[in-house]
């Protein structure tokens, strides 16, 4: 159900985004930083699902809060002539990598556990067969 909602949402968003009227180039830097912030929150959400600490309230507030904060910081940076958005990008991408690492570890462990279990079962079966054969002999 969750997966279905995500897929439908993505497709719908893509269609709206392609057909929507374009924004002016001046505002595109704000949109870019908001998109990065939102992506960071999504990866954080997946990581928290993996850790079984997922909370929808924190997820929603993070999604909008991070995006708005990033936009505000970018605007402030423009006023002060400091490229604050660079710092925001560094932080967000950093966290994205950390979250991706958590997700990766989780799945790698899951798979390796599965395979080792299978191997153990196989080994046990082989041992039993060998034992049977020796018994027969």
């Amino acid at each position: 159900m969750v997966l279905l909602a995500i897929i439908i949402g993505c497709v719908l968003g893509a269609i709206i985004g392609i057909n929507a009227p374009m924004i002016s180039y001046t505002y595109s830097s704000y949109l870019a930083i908001a998109v990065i912030a939102a992506l960071d929150t999504v990866f954080g959400g997946i990581a928290s699902v993996v850790n079984k600490k997922f909370d929808i309230k924190i997820f929603i507030t993070g999604f909008f809060g991070n995006a708005i904060l990033a936009i505000l910081l970018t605007m402030l940076g423009e006023k002060l002539n400091v490229d604050i958005y660079l710092a925001a990008i560094v932080v967000f991408v950093w966290r994205m990598f950390i979250n991706l690492a958590i997700i990766r570890r989780y799945y790698v462990e899951k798979w390796s556990n599965k395979f080792s279990k299978k191997d153990k079962e196989k080994n046990v079966e082989e041992d039993e067969e060998i034992a049977k054969k020796t018994n027969q002999n």
Partner: peptide, 20 residues
């Protein structure tokens, strides 16, 4: 799932708008 779907709408909307 509804909330997640809506967020995905927003996110992909932003990404595609930015790309264009």
């Amino acid at each position: 799932s509804i909330v997640l779907g809506l967020m995905c709408v927003l996110l992909t909307f932003g990404i595609f708008l930015q790309m264009r």
